[in-house]
Amino acid sequence: MPKKTDIVLDEKKINRALTRIAHEILEHNPDFNSLVIIGIITRGAFLAQRIAAIIEQLEGVKVPVGLMDIGLYRDDVHSKLDQPVVERTEILFDIVDRNVILVDDVLFTGRTVRAALDQIVDFGRPRTIQLAVLIDRGFRELPIRADYVGVNIPTSKDEQVILNVKEKEGIDQVYIQRKNNKPDAQKKSSLKTSLKKTKRG
């Protein structure tokens, strides 16, 4: 359980953020029938369902929702000892000439979004792809930005931003957690190895 002080968003704030995102999506895409939403597995998928539900409440339109696992499009498949488990991608509608809203929970390095963009293109040529994220925590490694952001949360690199959802954990909340391994010790050792490398080089 996260400490109370670590919680940055509660259920109310999350709902508010998602509702605002839904409004903005509708505002930018007056042709509601062209909209499709694709959530990135696993957390983005839940958020995609929720945004679609809010849109239905607001406008009475049923926007098709798809799920996407980006495991097969990752750029670090061969640099790890472990292969990520591949989940099923389910996009049961045509995306050609549609306005695709790509949904993820946290925007960080941008690599996940890059993989998702490549995958979407392999399904067809949409009119636009727009990115919606609940949280933007900075530290981008690729030139990617979100069109709809729930909250901007400044973080440091050795922190993790974690979203819990009712569907999985029984509670809606976002909290910040330090990485498990002691960050100071890690820094030291990485400094050592980099020194070694310099010497050798």
């Binding site: 696992d69 499009y73 990752r74 488990v85 099923r88 991608t89 392999d122 067809g124």
Partner: peptide
């Protein structure tokens, strides 16, 4: 079981119009 479950994901890939993913690029 891991192989069978992973197979399920690839079974979906080969039903796509573009039956190709970039996973083993460079291999």
């Amino acid at each position: 079981m891991l192989i069978l479950k992973t197979t399920d994901s690839f079974r979906e890939v080969i039903e796509r119009t573009i039956k190709k993913v970039p996973t083993l690029r460079g291999i």
